[in-house]
Design a protein around this nucleic acid. Structure first.
Lengths: 120, 120
DNA sequence: TGCGCATATATCCAGCGTGGATATATTGGC
DNA sequence: GCCAATATATCCACGCTGGATATATGCGCA
């Protein structure tokens, strides 16, 4: 289950919401509403994914194969029937890593200009 | 010539082209076409700003006060009359630093998920 | 001389990603 | 019984982008 450089690179640059969703799913399977909360929490409330952005991003990511909808649902007794859960694919992980690398390059370039101090 | 946190933060997230233009101008005054070349060079040819993106971004940045058009033109004997030169403002620098910081936070978050290794 | 390419700026269109509003339905607290 | 939170889904308007197009000058080369 390996992915070619071009196959992964073709997704970049990743839409902002997509990277956040991938990061939220890195810890485990989550449903849509939980992803919104997770992103808000992780960003200290600075990024609040709107429902429109979240559900359209999720649909696109399913189509692209970055995430899947697993058959098994966690904790049936605590479950909410309405929920739809999502899981990272190996392609999704590879794409997230590639995007993070791209962002690192960007930060490195910014530092190289001398415009940006090397730490805050 | 200081800028408030909110004044600067209000520009974020910065459009991709805008950050690249700010980085290109960090080294000194440049005209539009030179910015396109500079960005292509710095990114190893991976990002080629289209004319549409470049000139619209520049116009927006002038309106926002991130850059200015200096009166003095460099090297009059080597100059091309058609060129329009642009220069970073202190606001532009502050905004570029803030955006770089935002990207760093993003990379840090990606690392924290364990999804992204800490160096390549 | 004339052709094409690089230089240089500017405008237009179509496409995509986003926020916000709206809709629908269920659950829990007061 | 009412409102807020939970949960998903769709629609509209806006902003950013690439690519095409337009215009004009300068340079190399056949």
């Amino acid at each position: 289950m390996s992915h070619t450089h071009d196959e992964v690179q073709g997704f970049l640059p990743l839409p902002a919401a997509t990277l956040h969703i991938l990061m939220a799913l890195a810890e485990g399977d989550r449903h849509g509403y939980a992803i919104i909360q997770d992103v808000a929490e992780r960003t200290g409330g600075r990024l609040r994914l709107s429902p429109g952005t979240l559900y359209r991003s999720v649909q696109r990511m399913l189509d692209q194969g970055l995430i899947t909808e697993p058959r098994t649902r966690p904790a049936p007794e605590l479950d909410d029937e309405r929920r739809r859960y999502y899981r990272l694919t190996s392609l999704g992980m590879a794409v997230a890593r590639a995007e993070a690398g791209r962002l690192e390059d960007l930060v490195r370039m910014a530092r190289a200009t001398g415009l940006v101090p090397r730490k805050a």
